[in-house]
Design a protein around this nucleic acid. Structure first.
Lengths: 336, 336
DNA sequence: CCTCCCTGATACAACGTTATACCAAAACGG
DNA sequence: CCGTTTTGGTATAACGTTGTATCAGGGAGG
């Protein structure tokens, strides 16, 4: 029956002014212990929950954070979200997650909606095809933004991976095992982080005096990885190892091998990227470049908190290593 | 340099009052074509994006929707989110996703934060251990809420699955193949939907005059399913088929079999629930009870939209069928 | 030429908070 | 016992919108 209680409801119940209630609730100003108790009792009595929107409007403080992902379906992201949320919620922020599904238009709509609803900051994994107008919009609103993986502007804080170095380690490992023909599988767009991974791959090949790079583009999904591996076996039977743009592609590639009656780590070595939970669980277990997504989330959150604390500071870039986790999908090439 | 433009910025640029700008932007009132053009030009010129929070405060309208999941990591949810978002964004709403990770405390914090930040409606998959205080909070705020899967209150709209019937079909299928000892795998809490699934399983067993139910509780994850299957093979070698509380458990169980050198669909038949994308992709492909998560999301969104349109109407409950998709993990039991 | 009535735009108060200036009463020092 | 400070609280104006009452001006009708 009762309307939603507001500050004035509490004030009336406690017999004080709204200003007093507000001060008690925020712990500012000089309020005696006696009236504080009265006010808190009234708050409980009417079951009052402050309207943060109105508070934000007046105070200018904003504790709502947007987290825009380019592909929520990737299991990598669930843990990333956990890391971001845990850290930010501890500081009283509310994190809302949106999925652009790698669609630039949807991403633009999402970002506009987030700005319109006045998020105080953004953590953003840009989709491919992000346009300049959207970027201008964000900078014009001077919204604190931290991008992840794909750098789209020098004006934002950024957290990236040491992609080239990681791919170098993967190729080193394969070369040491004796592989001479190593392909790169996955991704479709000529942008970071994929381009940097391909760079690292190509440079490592050259360092080992192995043949020219062979890049096979495909979506970062299991079905695409499966199809790509089937195609690779047909067209390039000399290739004995592949490094992949992501674990989904790698796991799909393994499935493709299984479908041919072959097996990763026997006919062909496979290395993934991300180390999603399924990588260790798959049979054979996937050798992969591991980045701890929960910790990555924490890092992003910390970066954003620092930015919120000092909006004027120069943009900061951090890079995170991906470490090679050797499991069962890499082995010396078959003798024949 | 420039501050974030507001209504008055636009008004000044167009040489009209703020009220006029507001009316133009919302298409209400009587404004001549000439001034409308001037205003719209000014909007573009200063790159104005309205503050929806302030608008909501004044107008009472609210287009922010919260989506609280109990386990975002389950790939089932990515598609569900897509369905919900597509439908609601089409109607101008903004959907923000939170993950309670099946932790009642975190869920309570999340819900309180959403109420505090004045979401206009909620779609909610309740976690196990949801307490009455949280429920009271939601009803006291008379927030439009649609629950999914786990019903926690008669006062909310609800969308559920026909769990018992679905499990019945699964058991029928196995019985017809000749299985006499069928176990149930997965879940830990004595609440819907698991309890209803177990009910359906037990009733179907009875109808086929098969032995007493054998329920093996475990978390709804691959590692847990793997461990449970290993345990089952040791303790109950007579069991030749399992139905699972979810695809993650079922896929984990298949991995467990593989680890023993056995195979789902040969030594043991396995049936899952959900039909996540990986179910069809796994080898062997998983027989499972399929519910189209994207469509389910649309249904939820429609339900919430109807509720927002008529907050006073009596709560509505909808049930969705899960259909049996027969793939490669079910077969007649081995002869021996 | 003076009403009367539209048309088009504006002034102003409200939404639920917070920040600040302000005030009354009590406490204190000399 | 009076001035000064401190304590504890309130009144009031914002924040950026929207809804409504109001108003100025122009055209039509008498």
């Amino acid at each position: 029956m009762a309307e939603r209680p507001k500050l004035s409801t509490v004030a009336a119940a406690a017999g004080v002014s709204t200003a007093t209630v507000s001060q008690v609730l925020r712990g500012t100003g000089r309020i005696s212990a006696r009236t504080r108790e009265r006010v808190l009792a009234a708050v409980r009595a009417v079951n009052y929950l402050p309207d943060r929107r109105a508070a934000a409007l007046r105070s200018g403080e904003n504790h709502e954070i947007g987290l825009v992902l380019h592909h929520l379906a990737n299991p990598f992201n669930a843990e990333l979200i956990s890391g971001v949320s845990d850290r930010l919620e501890r500081d009283g922020h509310l994190v809302s997650v949106l999925d652009s599904r790698d669609d630039a238009d949807r991403q633009t709509r999402n970002l506009r909606a987030l700005i319109g609803n006045r998020r105080g900051g953004l953590i953003w994994v840009p989709a491919s095809g992000t346009d300049a107008a959207t970027l201008d919009l964000l900078t014009a609103q001077r919204l604190p933004v931290v991008t992840l993986l794909h750098r789209v502007s020098e004006g934002f804080d950024h957290v990236g991976l040491r992609d080239a170095a990681a791919l170098g380690r993967a190729v080193d490992h394969l070369a040491r095992l004796g592989h001479r023909h190593i392909a790169f599988l996955g991704g479709t767009t000529p942008r970071a982080p994929r381009s940097e991974r391909i760079d690292g791959y190509a440079r490592a090949l050259a360092a080992h005096r192995l043949g020219p790079p062979h890049v096979l583009p495909c979506d970062d999904s299991k079905p695409a990885g499966l199809a790509a591996m089937l195609a690779l076996r047909e067209t390039r039977p000399d290739v004995t190892a592949v490094v992949c743009n992501g674990d989904m592609v790698a796991l799909g590639a393994c499935l493709g091998l299984a479908r041919r009656g072959e097996m990763a780590g026997r006919e062909i070595s496979v290395i993934g990227f991300d180390d999603v939970a399924d990588a260790a669980l798959a049979t054979p277990a996937l050798t992969t470049l591991s980045v701890a997504p929960y910790d990555l989330g924490c890092l992003l959150a910390d970066r954003l908190l620092a930015r919120l604390a000092d909006p004027a500071a120069a943009p900061v870039t951090r890079h995170v290593e991906a470490t090679l986790v050797i499991r069962d999908t890499t082995a010396p090439p078959p003798p024949h």
